[in-house]
């Protein structure tokens, strides 16, 4: 893992939605590996590389708060857009007619340290894709606070502040002691295409999340359970 990075991320609020409770959202107790991957990828990603999350440190105690908002129930329909394009008509969603009030149980005052590394993706990496190159770009972006888009803590209204933890610096100590079993948690979504590349499928994988003194070690978590 010579090309590993450590990133501290924090924010006032976070919502890592549990898939079984996503109408009225309920967050997991902590940052999920897939959300952590999303944070890193918002900062730096290329098709030539694949990020893997090794460890997540949960620095702050786990606290929740509740938030109910007016949301819309409708999504844009491709067919309706096509029609509007062809006829030059207007196409809208009337928010007040498609009103859903949804509550969300979200985390507050979160701070995490993500330890991650990347591997080259053999399908996509070209000759000029060396690990050194990608590693240095990633480090440079982290040091300068650069991003492709603002990383978020689960949903876009909860922006994540981030900074690189240098190799010589210490990881902040977690406020959580002992073993905490968080139950089954989403590991990541697996994206695949069938052989003729006509259909894409997405399937989730889960693992048993256990915090040891605030640290979630994912190196052996892999795809423990799959549905």
């Amino acid at each position: 893992m010579g090309y590993g990075i450590k990133v501290r991320v924090w924010g006032d609020y976070a919502c890592f939605t549990r898939p079984e409770m996503k109408v009225e959202r309920v967050s997991y107790d902590m940052l999920t590996p897939s959300a952590a991957r999303g944070i890193i990828e918002a900062i730096y990603w290329k098709p030539a590389i694949k990020w893997t999350i090794d460890k997540i440190h949960v620095i702050n105690p786990i606290k929740f708060t509740n938030m109910r908002r007016n949301e819309v129930s409708e999504v844009a329909k491709l067919g309706s857009i096509k029609k509007a394009m062809e006829k030059g008509e207007s196409y809208q969603i009337i928010a007040t007619d498609n009103r859903h009030q949804r509550a969300a149980l979200i985390l507050r005052d979160v701070e995490y340290v993500i330890e991650a590394h990347f591997d080259l993706n053999p399908d996509k990496a070209g000759e000029s894709d060396t690990v050194e190159k990608h590693y240095n770009i990633a480090l440079r972006r982290l040091k300068n606070g650069q991003y492709f888009y603002q990383p978020t803590l689960g949903t876009r209204e909860f922006a994540a502040s981030f900074e690189l933890i240098e190799h010589t610096s210490e990881i902040p100590k977690s406020n959580i002691q002992g073993e905490v079993d968080l139950g089954y948690m989403l590991y990541d979504m697996n994206f695949s295409v069938n052989e003729s590349k006509t259909k894409q499928s997405v399937s989730p994988s889960f693992f048993r999340a256990k915090l040891e003194d605030g640290i979630l070690d994912l190196r052996n978590a892999g795809n423990e359970v799959r549905i």
Binding site: V72, A76, G79, Y91, A95
Partner: peptide, 22 residues
């Protein structure tokens, strides 16, 4: 144009209820 609207006026009803093309 604004996609997500409030109904403040009634001039825009025609298009949006149309069902999808195939």
């Amino acid at each position: 144009k604004i996609f997500i609207k409030e109904v403040l006026n009634d001039k825009l009803e025609q298009a949006y209820l149309e069902k999808s093309l195939t």
